[in-house]
Design a protein around this nucleic acid. Sequence first.
DNA 1: AGACAGGGGAGTG
DNA 2: CACTCCCCTGTC
Length: 275
Amino acid sequence: MNKITVKDFNLKHTLESGQVFRFEEVDGYYYINAQHKLFKVKQLGNKLFYDGASQKFINSYFNLNQDLKPILRKIVTDKHMHKATTKYSGLRLINQDPWECLIAFLCSSASNIPKIKQNLDLLSKHFGQKIFLDHIRSFTFPRCGALNNLEKIKASKTGFRANYIHQANFIITEEFLESLKLLPYAEAKEQLMKLNGIGSKVADCVLLFSLGFTEAFPVDTWMTKAMRQLYLPDQKNVKEQDMIQFAQNTWGKNAGYAQQYLYHYSRMNGKEEII
DNA sequence: AGACAGGGGAGTG
DNA sequence: CACTCCCCTGTC
C-alpha cells in the first residue's frame, strides 16, 4: 500500500462536497472512478493511503501541492465563512478531467446526486471499458467521441439530457476544452454556453472543477438559499447574476473556493452525519 | 396512487 | 423577464 503525508486536506469533505459523483466507500476505502482509472484512497490523520494510481496522479487530482492557507485567509471574510472553513477544514477543489466533468454536469440539471451517479455509471457501462481493483468491478468513463449512440445514452436514463450529451459528444474535442484554459473567464464561459444544455450554472461548474477558473461561482438552488439567507437578505428577487457579482466582488479569484465551502456547509446544515 | 420536486436550460411571448 | 416544458426517479 502506498502512503503519503498530507497537509490541510480532508478526503471525506473533499469527495462528499458535491464536486464529483463516481466514488463509493467500501471497507474503509473510497474507491474512485476518474480519468480512466479505478483507484482507492483512505485517510488516517495526515496520512493518505492509496492504490491504483501514481503518487503524481493523487497529488494532481486532489490538488495537494497547492498551499490552502493563503486561499483560506482570503475567503474568511466574515463569521459564516469562518464557520464553514473551520467545520470543513481540509476541503479542496478536485482537478477533474474537463470532458468527464462536462458530461457529469450536463446530467445534473433538474436532477439529484444519486441520479447523476446512476447516469454516469450507466453511461460508463454502455460505452466504457471494464476495470478492476481488488474485488471491485467498474467501467471507465467513455472518452470524448465515444458517446456515439443516442439510444444507449437514453438507456442510461438521462431523459431530456440525452440529446445534449449526444450533441456535445460530436461537437466537443479535447483540444477545444484545453483551449478554454487559455481564455479569460468570461470568454471561456461564453464559449461553453454556446453548447446546448449548458447554461450559466453548468458552465461555471465545468470552469471551476476542471478548467482552473477559481473565480467561477456556480449558483444552484442550494447556493441561492444560502446567499439569500447569509448575504443578501433584504433584497427580494435576487438574481443569479447579482449573487455572482457579490461573490466575485467579495472573494475575487477565490470565489469558487468560497462557493465550495458555503455549498457544503449549507447542504450539511441540519443533517449532520452520524459518527 | 398520484402528484410533485429534485444541485437547469431552452423555447416562447 | 416570466412562464412552461423537457425525462426520470424517489418521496410523500
